[in-house]
Design a protein around this nucleic acid. Structure first.
Length: 827
DNA sequence: GATTAGGCTTTG
C-alpha cells in the first residue's frame, strides 16, 4: 500500500523508513535525485479527485512546509503534489486538509501553473510502485478543525489559571474621569486603519460608544501593526485595556498607555466570539462574553450607528463613496504616486468599468483574464500613502478598501487609451490621505464577509471558453475569407531535416534546445507536452499541451479577423464594411416619407459642419428623448455615415433612424443601432425585434449605456469577437487550429477595443509579427507553449469532423527591445 | 515612560 496513515505519537503503526532523509520544499528542483529523500508538509488544500473514463485517477494537493515557531509566516514554501493512479484514490480517502504528510518516491516536474498560482516552480509527482505517502493527523488536543478551536483551547487553559490573572474592571464611557487609566468596552462608530505618524509609531484613530451614548475618541499609538485594533467595519466591538483618559477640546478622549492591549469582535448579534488579537495569552471569561453580547444586542436596536458604507460592486453608483470587500487579482505600479489594484467581488456592475492598460511585465498576478472575468474586474487607483501599503499586498488576498470613490467618466489617468477617456466608464479611486477612514485592510479568509463573498464568486458562471460545441467548424469555415489549403504531407516532410523527423515528443524536445516561449499556458491541466502528430493520433476530444512554432495564419489582413457574434443564436457574421454602410445611410436618407414622431420625443434640428471647413453646413432632423438630457441620446435622421461619425464626437449616444410606413424605425437591421464615440454597436438581425422606444432608467442619474439602449430598442446586441486560423508546426507534423474563444485572452486585448482603437489593433498585429515575422525561415520563429482543445463537430452534411482551438494561452510580448519583429534572444 | 493625532463635509 503506497498510502500509510501514521499513528499519533510513537505508538504502533507505519513509520517513515529511517534511511530516508527529509528535504526542505525550498530545495526541490529537477537537478537533484530525490530517490532517498522525503518532503514533509501540511496539507493546505486538497483538490477534488479527478477520475478519467479509462478508470485512472489524479489528485492534486498543495502542501506547505511547517517550521517552528508554529505561527509560520505565509512565505513558507508551498508546492503542488500531484498523485496519479491508485495512490491518488487511496490517498484521497485517507487525507484531510490540515494533516501533515510525508511524500517519498516522487519525481520532480516543472509546474505548468507557476505563473498562475505563484507556488513552487516545480511539482512533486507521485506515481507507480515506488511512490509512497505517509499521513499524520494533527496532534491532539487540538482536533483537526479551525484555528478557532485552538484559540478556545488555549483560552480555557487561561481560564483555568485565572487565579493568577488580575480581574479587570470596566468603566462605562459615560463615567470617565480625566487623568485616570481605565479598561473599557465600546462599539466602533468610526475608525481609521493604522497610519504612519510623524513620530515613531502607527496611529489608529477610533470613536466608540456604549449604552451611555457618549462617543469617545481614542488614539492608539503602536510601533507594530499587529498590536493595533483589528477593526473591519463600523459596529465592531473593542475591548481596550489600560487607556488613559484625557480632556481634549472639552471632550474626554482615550489614549493608549503602558500595558495597553486591545481585542476586537464581530459586532453582529450571534456572531463569532473569537477575539481578534495578536496576544498569545489573554483573559476572556463569561463576563466578557456577556459584555460583548450586551453591546451587540444594544447596538442592534440603535439607529445611532452610522449606516455601513460597504456595498458590492453591482450596487455602486457613480460618485459614491463606499467600502469594498474584494479579492485582489493583480496589481501594477502606475507611477510613484499611484498603484493599480485589480479586484473583483463576484458581482457585476451595471456600469462599464474603467480599463487601465499597463505593461504585462509590470503586473504582479495575471496580466489578463478571460473576457467573462474581465467584465467583473474593478480597477482601483490607489494614491500616495496607499501606494506603500499596496506594495505589501499579494494577489489572492481578500481586502476591504475603505472610502473608495466611484468616478463616472474618467480623468487624466496614465495608461488609458484615448477612446476610453470619452466614455462613461466607472473608475475607482482611493484618494491619498486617511481622512474618512480611507485605507486598505487585509481580511482573513474565515471572516464572515469573505465567506459570503466567496459563495457569490463560486456562483459566477464558469468561463464559457470550453463550450466549443455552440459553433461548429463548418460555420467557421463558411465565414472564412480564404479557405485553408490542404497540406501535402510530402511537402511538409521535405522541410524537415532527415535527422529531426521524429514522431514523438522526446525527439521533438531533443532538437529543440531553445526553452524560451513566446506564450504562456494559463490552464490547470497537469499534462506533458506532446508532439502534433501525437495530438492528431489521439482520441476525438481532449486537451493537449504542445510546443510549436507558427507556420502561417489567416487572415493576413487583421481587420478581417474581427467578426460579430450573437450569444443568443450562436451565429457569427462579418462586420459590414464602410462602403456597404454608407450605402444604407444614403438609401435611408433619400426616402423619408411623412411620419408622426413618438409622443415622448421632442423634435428638432442639428447642424452638421461641412467638410472641408467653410463648405455648406447641413441641417438634419433629430428627435430627443425628454427623459434624457441634451447630448445624452439623439435619434438622428437623414445623415450620411460620415456625418453620423462626425456628430458622434459631440453627442454621447446616436441612434440612426428613418421613417418607414409613417413610423420612426431604426435605419436598417445590418446598420449599427448605436454610435458611441468611436464605438459602433450592431444588433442581431435574427434575434432582434427592433422598434424605436424610449429607454427607461430606473433611479435618477443612471447613465445610459449600450445595454440599456439595446434593451429599449428591442435589439439583441452582437459582440465583437476575434477569429483567426493558425497553422502550427513542430518537427513531427503541422496542424490547423482556430484561435477564437481564447483570442482575447491570447492577445490581452478585447475585440471591442480592437474594433474601436488603433492601439489595440497594433497589439494584435505586433504579436502576430513577432510570432511570424516576414522573411526568415520558419525554423527561426519563436516557440510557443500552447494548450490545445481537440473536439468534434458536425458539418452541414451531418459528418463528424475534428477541430482544434487554442485555449488558456496568452502571448507574452518580448520585453526588450520593444521591437515588434522577433528579437535575437528568441532565436 | 518622549513623540505621534486630535476623524469629517473628500475629488488625481
Amino acid at each position: 500500500m503506497p498510502v500509510h496513515v501514521l499513528s499519533e505519537g510513537a505508538g504502533p503503526g507505519a513509520q517513515v523508513p529511517k534511511h530516508l532523509s527529509c528535504v526542505s520544499i525550498a530545495l526541490i528542483s529537477t537537478s537533484t535525485n530525490f530517490s532517498d529523500k522525503t518532503v514533509k508538509g501540511k496539507v493546505l488544500r486538497k483538490c477534488p479527485l479527478v477520475s478519467s473514463a479509462s478508470g485512472d485517477f489524479i489528485l492534486k494537493i498543495i502542501i506547505q512546509e511547517e517550521v517552528s515557531p508554529p505561527d509560520a509566516s505565509p512565505q513558507n514554501p508551498s508546492i503542488n503534489v500531484i498523485l496519479f493512479g491508485a495512490i491518488a484514490k487511496d490517498f484521497d480517502g485517507a487525507v484531510n486538509q490540515g494533516d501533515v504528510v510525508v511524500a517519498a518516491g516522487f519525481t520532480v516536474g516543472k509546474s505548468p501553473t507557476v505563473q498562475k498560482d505563484k507556488l513552487h516552480p516545480f511539482n512533486l509527482l507521485l506515481r507507480g510502485d515506488s511512490a509512497c505517502i505517509y499521513v499524520s493527523p494533527p496532534p491532539p488536543p487540538v482536533s483537526r478543525s479551525s484555528p478557532a478551536a485552538k484559540r478556545i483551547s488555549s483560552l480555557s487553559a487561561e481560564v483555568s489559571r485565572k487565579t493568577k490573572v488580575p480581574k479587570y474592571t470596566y468603566v462605562g464611557l459615560g463615567d470617565l474621569t480625566a487623568g485616570s487609566v481605565v479598561n473599557v468596552y465600546g462599539v466602533v462608530v468610526f475608525f481609521k486603519q493604522p497610519f504612519k505618524t510623524r513620530g515613531t509609531d502607527f496611529c489608529s484613530s477610533l470613536k466608540i460608544t456604549d449604552q451611555s451614548n457618549e462617543k469617545i475618541s481614542c488614539s492608539i499609538f503602536c510601533e507594530k501593526l499587529e498590536d493595533h485594533p483589528k477593526i473591519y467595519q463600523i459596529g465592531d466591538i473593542v475591548r481596550l485595556h489600560r487607556v488613559k483618559v484625557q480632556l481634549f477640546n472639552s471632550s474626554m478622549t482615550l489614549v493608549k498607555t503602558f500595558g495597553f492591549s486591545v481585542m476586537a469582535f464581530d459586532g453582529a448579534v450571534g456572531g463569532s466570539m473569537e477575539p481578534r488579537t495578536s496576544s498569545r495569552s489573554f483573559s476572556f471569561d463569561q463576563e466578557d462574553r456577556k459584555r460583548v453580547e450586551e453591546l451587540r444586542s444594544w447596538a442592534s436596536d440603535q439607529s445611532l450607528l452610522p449606516p455601513s458604507p460597504t456595498m458590492p460592486l453591482c450596487d455602486v453608483q457613480p460618485k459614491a463613496y463606499f467600502d469594498l470587500t474584494c479579492q485582489l487579482l493583480a496589481k501594477a505600479p502606475i507611477d510613484s504616486t499611484c498603484t493599480l489594484l485589480r479586484v473583483w467581488d463576484g458581482t457585476r456592475s451595471a456600469h462599464t468599468l474603467l480599463k487601465v492598460i499597463v505593461e504585462p511585465d509590470a503586473t504582479e498576478g495575471p496580466s489578463s483574464f478571460p473576457p467573462e472575468r474581465e467584465r467583473l474586474i474593478a480597477n482601483i487607483l490607489a494614491y500616495d500613502n496607499h501606494v506603500e501599503y499596496a506594495r505589501q499586498l499579494k494577489p489572492g488576498e481578500f481586502l476591504r478598501i475603505y472610502n473608495l470613490r466611484a468616478i463616472p467618466g474618467s480623468s487624466k489617468v496614465p495608461g488609458l487609451t484615448s477612446s476610453q477617456k470619452e466614455l462613461d466608464h466607472l473608475a475607482f479611486h482611493l484618494h491619498g490621505g486617511n481622512a474618512f477612514g480611507r485605507g486598505i485592510r487585509v481580511l482573513p479568509e474565515d471572516c464572515p464577509d469573505v465567506q459570503e463573498m466567496k459563495r457569490v464568486m463560486e456562483a459566477c458562471p464558469e468561463d464559457d471558453e470550453d463550450d466549443f460545441s455552440a459553433l461548429n467548424d463548418s460555420e467557421l469555415m463558411e465565414i472564412w475569407s480564404t479557405p485553408p489549403e490542404s497540406i501535402e504531407p510530402s511537402l511538409l516532410r521535405a522541410q524537415i531535416p532527415e535527422s529531426a523527423r521524429g514522431e514523438d515528443a522526446e525527439t521533438s524536445e531533443s532538437i529543440n534546445t531553445d526553452c524560451s516561449s513566446s506564450t504562456e499556458r494559463r490552464c490547470d491541466h497537469d499534462t506533458h507536452s506532446v508532439s502534433l502528430s501525437e495530438v492528431k493520433r489521439s482520441g476525438p476530444a481532449g486537451v493537449h499541451h504542445v510546443r510549436v512554432q507558427l507556420k502561417s495564419y489567416e487572415p493576413q489582413k487583421l481587420h478581417q479577423s474581427l467578426k460579430l457574434y450573437c450569444s443568443k443564436c450562436s451565429t457569427l457574421q462579418e462586420v459590414p464594411d464602410d462602403e456597404m454602410l454608407a450605402g444604407l445611410f444614403s438609401e435611408a436618407s433619400r426616402d423619408s416619407g411623412p411620419f408622426s414622431p413618438p409622443d415622448w420625443a421632442v423634435s428638432g434640428q442639428v447642424d452638421v459642419p461641412g467638410n472641408p471647413p467653410g463648405s455648406k453646413t447641413r441641417t438634419l432632423g433629430v428627435h430627443l428623448s425628454t427623459e434624457f438630457m441634451y447630448k445624452q441620446l439623439l435619434f438622428l435622421m437623414g445623415s450620411s455615415l460620415e456625418e453620423t461619425c462626425v456628430l458622434s464626437s459631440g453627442y454621447q449616444n446616436i441612434v440612426p433612424v428613418r421613417s418607414s410606413g409613417g413610423q420612426l424605425t431604426l435605419l436598417h437591421p445590418s446598420a449599427p443601432f448605436l454610435f458611441r464615440g468611436t464605438r459602433t454597436y450592431y444588433g442581431c438581425e435574427r434575434c432582434s425585434e427592433a422598434a424605436v422606444r424610449e429607454p427607461v432608467c430606473a433611479g435618477g442619474g443612471r447613465i445610459l449605456d449600450e445595454k440599456i439602449i439595446a434593451e429599449a430598442l428591442g435589439v439583441v446586441p452582437l459582440r465583437f469577437v476575434l477569429l483567426m486560423k493558425l497553422e502550427l508546426r513542430d518537427v513531427s507534423d503541422s496542424l490547423h487550429v482556430f484561435l477564437w474563444r481564447s483570442a482575447e485572452e491570447f492577445f490581452g486585448v478585447s475585440a471591442e477595443d480592437a474594433a474601436a482603437n488603433q492601439e489595440a489593433q497594433d497589439i494584435i498585429s505586433q504579436s502576430m509579427d513577432s510570432l511570424c515575422p516576414a522573411g526568415g525561415s520558419t525554423a527561426e520563429r519563436p516557440w510557443m507553449d500552447l494548450c490545445l482543445t481537440k473536439y468534434q463537430s458536425v458539418d452541414d452534411d451531418g459528418l463528424n469532423q475534428i477541430c482544434y482551438q487554442i485555449s488558456h494561452s496568452t502571448f507574452t510580448r518580448p520585453s526588450a527591445p520593444p521591437n515588434p519583429t522577433v528579437s535575437a534572444s528568441q532565436r
